[in-house]
Design a protein around this nucleic acid. Structure first.
Lengths: 263, 263
DNA sequence: CGGGCAATGTTAATCTTTGTTCATCTTGGC
DNA sequence: GCCAAGATGAACAAAGATTAACATTGCCCG
């Protein structure tokens, strides 16, 4: 390989760093056919422009500033059931779709599965969903605005609603805090219920995700009924009697098969 | 897999932990091809920064659930000047005000100073500003929606603009990528310039923050002129000739006195 | 042709990181 | 409650990385 001028080599280093988590001086020296000293000088120059951060033995991408939003949440409850439901929901998604992802832990599991999606647009009021998908190459994330509630990753309020009105989507995925035995969809928060209602209006189709513990439970606000949704996905422990009743409302009921735990 | 320098390995560990509930020392050692002792030292370092919590045999994410948005940090250049400018800007803020905080590192410094604000409302398109203020008891944070650009903490686009239209504020704080010698305000990004323009419209008053290195520089998009702003704050190294010229445009020019570095 | 100049390679002293050993401590099974 | 398997951390040695200073190379231009 022909030697490169130093500036070309430096931008090459920077580009190759874009994919990897880090590079070693030795491997760069081998790759460019130069001595370790030269590579170190290149890295020093790049660091002076704060394009990379040097480490002992190599370099990594410049220190990222990390913005943290935190919330206390037991994401663990029924994690397996939620994962199974999310996997079933994932199968409804086709490349090119514009999706709405609601707040909630089940939709968050779905978001994780969408990371390898192709040409998707995800509209969401959830910082958690946005955080999950921010690095997904094939997914454009549109965060709806709203008020930040302390300790909660969800944006709500009039801003959220007005933002939502700007869109139309192919499919909305929503969680629920309770599914009444008559198929009513309940939310624990009034404002979230209002946002949910609006989501169903701007989406051509809607898919409700709820594990079996939600069935037969009610919560503060009724945001609608399963009859307004296209699909309802729950896990294998849901009582079949209720599911039959729901099916008569016109919604397509899907029972997610348990999946093997992650390695 | 080739060996990574230690710091790169540590940030990898941290990232991989973001998905899984926990990791074991043995699996990390195998994955990175290092000894258990090395992994333990990495985990100890990460725990010292309270990024993970160690357990017997491995580690898990730190107690709280953290949603991270990261971006390549812009240069720390002129941090002291920016802090001084932010401190001067802080003095314009009174309890009860509704503020707009623009994107940018200077406004981010201002956000940090607003954490002890009383009865404030902060409207911002910046995830960084929102992150900074999410725990401030006396500050309600309204995040404008928009498209999440990879590696950038700023939300932009039509959603941002439409959301902004819902508000009226007392005072907008804006940074700038360049201040022309005729007082023109320049932005490096066209969409950000458009958002800035709109901010000035919905705010009763506007304050431009720019350190002296920005003066005399131009950038892609002209978003307006200092004549449209109420106040312009810069640092002590700004050329007085330019400042006199700006003052003739009708803007109040404030020169921030240097502050002592943080402890 | 050759001086000047910047980039690169080399050497040697010094510092970091890593692996190993071993005594001690945790954890989970019984 | 006790024991065994395995995890931990201190200490030390070895491998390898870093830096500064100096030597060398290659190239531009008079």
């Amino acid at each position: 390989m022909r030697r490169l001028p130093s500036s070309a080599r430096q931008s090459q280093i920077r580009r190759s760093l874009a994919g990897r988590p880090g590079v070693t001086v030795a491997s760069l020296a081998r790759e460019f056919g130069v001595s370790g000293m030269t590579v170190r000088r290149d890295l020093a120059a790049l660091e002076a422009r704060s394009e990379v951060r040097r480490t002992h033995g190599g370099a990594m991408l410049a220190e990222r500033m990390i913005l943290e939003f935190d919330y206390r949440e037991r994401r663990e409850a029924n994690r397996e059931a939620k994962r199974a439901i999310a996997a079933a929901a994932r199968r409804l998604v086709r490349p090119g779709m514009r999706l709405i992802l609601d707040n909630g832990t089940t939709t968050l599991e779905l978001a994780a599965l969408l990371r390898d999606g192709r040409d998707l647009t995800v509209i969401t009021p959830s910082l958690a969903v946005a955080s999950e998908l921010q690095h997904a190459a094939g997914v454009e994330v549109i965060l709806l605005g709203g008020v930040i509630r302390r300790g909660s990753p969800d944006l709500t309020g009039p801003v959220t609603e007005r933002s939502l009105e700007l869109f139309s989507a192919d499919l909305a995925f929503q969680g629920a805090d309770g599914i009444g035995s008559d198929g009513s969809i309940y939310n624990a928060d009034l404002r979230l219920a209002q946002v949910d209602r609006l989501m169903r209006r701007v989406a051509r189709d809607c898919c409700i995700l709820a594990d079996h513990t939600k069935i037969g439970r009610t919560a503060l606000a009724r945001s609608g009924g399963l009859g307004n949704a296209g699909t309802f996905i729950t896990d294998a422990e849901a009582p079949t009697a209720a599911l039959r009743r729901f099916a008569r409302l016109g919604v397509k009921v899907v029972v997610a098969r348990p999946i093997s735990p992650l390695p």
